[in-house]
Design a protein around this nucleic acid. Structure first.
Lengths: 110, 110
DNA sequence: TTGCTTAATCGTAATATTGCAATGAACAAA
DNA sequence: TTTGTTCATTGCAATATTACGATTAAGCAA
């Protein structure tokens, strides 16, 4: 039914999935990479950098903002976006922990 | 229009997004965690472990298999799934590189 | 063979996502 | 005030995702 059954999973699993989903679009990856390079970026720059229309970029920025991955600051008529450093560390930690898991080699099937 | 414009992004950005999207559902996170714990797992185990119907689990497994994150091995009537170790290292490396990027602190806006 | 078990596939319904034109809101400059 | 700039929001169309009942296919056991 297009509706994820979040209630049957742990908070950690749901949170991991939510953040991963935010990374699950090339435009949002591109936005984050751009913010990393500059650590200060207005929406208009992203529109010209990435080849998507302004409302589309704005929508992707909103998603990243909702998840607290980035934060925006109004500067006159333009808005400056940055990585939320504190939250980024949390997310980084969560993913590092996930990738720390190494598959046990037991060779009994694959 | 519900269709991602992959052609305007780099291969790296598209690949990163594709893998992240696979991690973007709690059921697939749960499946991977289970496979890490056991490194050998039949579909039926996952169906009882996670509270989703058999066709749904099968569908999630298919997605993970399409991306080469896991691989399956037929064992009589059941199918054994495992993490694809080689591919997992590639993915891990890709994410570690992504998270290595630290935002430059310049404090000029946020 | 028949019956049972296991998992993939098909078909379908409900919901989510992506993208953008049009519009609106807020501010700065003239 | 008017005009232009910048970004958010609205509304909509096209496509994707999630979930599952029903069915199918393939192996095993009697």
């Amino acid at each position: 039914m297009g509706l994820t059954k979040s209630e049957i999973f742990t908070d950690e699993q749901n949170r991991m999935a939510l953040i991963a989903k935010a990374f699950g679009h090339p435009a949002r990856i591109a936005i984050l990479q751009h913010l990393f390079k500059l650590n200060s970026c207005v929406c208009g720059d992203l529109v010209s950098e990435i080849g998507l229309a302004q409302p589309t970029i704005s929508q992707h920025l909103k998603e990243l903002k909702n998840l607290k991955i980035i934060k925006g600051n109004i500067e006159g008529t333009s808005v400056c976006y940055c990585i939320d450093q504190k939250e980024w560390q949390n997310i980084k930690h969560m993913f590092l922990q996930f990738f720390e898991q190494e598959p046990v080699v037991n060779g009994d099937c694959c």
